[in-house]
Amino acid sequence: MNSPTATQPNLHRPHMPRHFTKVLVISIVLLGLCMIASLAFGSRTVRWQELIDGLFHPAIDSYGADVVRKRISRTVFGLCCGAALGVSGSLMQAVTRNPIADPSILGVNTGASLFVVCGLAFLNITTANQYIWLALAGAMLTAVFVFGIGSMGRGGATPLKLVLAGAATTAALSSLVSAIMVPRSYVMDQFRFWQVGSVGSGNWDVIGTFAPFLIVGLLLAIITAPALNALALGDEAATGLGVRTGLLRFVAAFAGVLLCGATTALAGPIGFIGLLATHVIRLLLGPDLRYVIPMSALSGAIILSVSDVIGRLVGSPGELEVGVVTAFIGAPILIILAMRMKVRSL
């Protein structure tokens, strides 16, 4: 009889997918181009020499170079948010075995929004640290609630039940958000700029607040990736391989909600990044989460950065918030995925 350890190497020993090196190199090149575009384009497009001066010649004091320097923190913040949302989406899809799971679809973003608006209305919150803890609490409670509702009845937490539970929860929480805001015009003024989702508020202080949550979430995601591969075989098979499925789901879901909640607190509820980033990587590299998770971070950073640049170009001389751009791109793709996959399990 084979021992449990004899069946585990195929799950835990790295087996590089085809074209991984090519996809990695292309992703890094695209990421670099996105960074350059984010620094160069906006309400004022800078010339190449101004870009060089802003990045490498701090002694040069010109308007174009100053614009580039101010955009650096926004660019870094956008890349961090995109990476966090990409990994969050891949974790939620793995935990729920739902190919269209995403923080925005499962109601996590809306739960974070409700707690933030409650903080604005009743607690007079004003700082990023206050936003982030309230948003995390709202995101985690909503995730537990949606999974609990989706697990009720025969068959447990099926993909279709989770999506329906997320949609119903989103509708209910959105109504509560409106009910709190409408009679309080000062809350509406603060909340409406945050609600659409934007990385324009990114500065080094905000990045410093965000960094610990991003690092912890990414580390947990990478640590749980091999066991999540086993979970994709089903709970019984995963248990037979020595995986503690309950603990694994909790840790992976916690990491996903941590990444999503922290991003939502500081940038607003930006939707569809996790869905798009993960599906692009699965299409290119296959289902192995040891590669899907880190590459989803790269893919999410690229998608959000491109969306931010598009928003600045389309809305010039102002800007169209990145949450609007990602929703415009992501909604039709979600419909196509739902029609083709018929909401089947991973």
Rank of each mutant, 00 (worst) to 15 (best):
P183K: 03
T75V: 10
Q49T: 13
I52F: 11
P17N: 11
L91S: 06
F56T: 13
V29E: 09
G323E: 00
G286I: 12
V199E: 01
V309C: 10
V76R: 03
D288Y: 09
F20Y: 15
L123Q: 13
S73T: 10
D235P: 12
T75W: 07
R344G: 15
P183C: 04
D102S: 07
M295R: 04
E50I: 03
R344I: 08
L313Y: 11
T45E: 08
G54R: 02
V68Q: 06
A165F: 00
P212M: 06
L136I: 10
A128R: 00
L33Q: 06
V306N: 04
A37H: 10
G217V: 04
G64V: 05
F254R: 08
S178L: 13
T45R: 06
A40I: 05
S88G: 09
P99W: 01
L266Q: 06
L123H: 13
P17Q: 12
A265C: 00
V146T: 02
I60S: 09
V146S: 00
G300P: 10
T245C: 13
P159D: 09
L164V: 13
L241V: 06
G330C: 06
F213I: 04
S307H: 02
A59D: 15
A137V: 14
F213T: 01
A297F: 00
I100R: 06
G242Q: 07
L346R: 12
V324T: 13
L30Q: 07
R184Q: 14
C34L: 08
T126L: 11
G111K: 02
I281N: 05
R47D: 13
G271V: 04
